[in-house]
Nucleic acid binder design. Structure first.
Lengths: 129, 129
DNA sequence: CATATGTGTAACCATAGAGTTACATATTGG
DNA sequence: CCAATATGTAACTCTATGGTTACACATATG
């Protein structure tokens, strides 16, 4: 039994990004940044939540690298940076590949051991020559 | 100002999956299921948390379709189903594409308006002494 | 310089969520 | 039928987190 942390053995991607995109408002912020740079105020005006709330979301997004900031005068221009999402995509892709591999193994297994108990039996799929 | 919900205009993927994979233990469970089916007890024994905790994680994972269960006798065999992750991958990919598009637009913009103030100037990246 | 503007921070609140222990519900095996 | 095994559920606790309001700061502007 692993007593410390999950410790999957598989490379565990940065926790932060997963948590960051778990919140719908933060995903919406990133979506809103798809068109290009926006100031904190502009972003906040898109949602029904207070500006401070958005400010904190932006801070968190910046912390995990999903957003870059550029201070221009008294305003701050935010722009999305999807780079950290590669971790998420890689993890998701690996999950899919794992399934595919299992299916291949299963197929191979079924084809190699038709019916030990009955030599006269035809293939398990019922499509014998 | 949108008063209801984020409402990004862009297709908003199922909230559930994002929340489900936000938890490191749940991701670890899915990773552990990469090799094939496992019973609830086997899964629980991999972590330093109580079995009920794992049970709840499994319930949530099943609710969002990331895991399938098959009751066999008194035990339950769980297996991963990465299908719902396509939503996540699509969203992530779209984010990346949005950035690429912005960069292309920027490049085009820079190339179309080299140096209005100096007709003799060559490409924008030149190193004028 | 005195204000208006654009933002971040601090202090609080309320709720969600992850963990725990105790107990209820199937099945299997004698 | 009864004890052991494999799980899920209920009832709680604690902490993380998203939101809010009030206030501090920096930069533009008349």
């Amino acid at each position: 039994m692993v007593t410390h942390m999950p410790e999957t053995g598989l490379a565990e991607p940065p926790e932060g990004v997963f948590r960051a995109i778990a919140d719908p408002t933060r995903r919406a912020i990133l979506d809103g940044l798809s068109g290009g740079e926006r100031t904190a105020g502009e972003i906040a005006s898109d949602f029904g939540v207070s500006r401070p709330a958005i400010s904190k979301h932006l801070k968190l997004l910046e912390a995990v690298g999903l957003v870059r900031v550029e201070k221009v005068g008294r305003e701050r221009r935010f722009r999305a940076d999807p780079a950290p999402l590669t971790d998420v995509e890689r993890w998701a892709a690996r999950q899919r590949l794992a399934l595919a591999r299992r299916l291949v193994d299963l197929k191979a297994h079924l084809e190699s051991e038709p019916f030990k108990t009955d030599p006269t039996a035809r293939g398990s799929e019922g499509a014998p020559p």
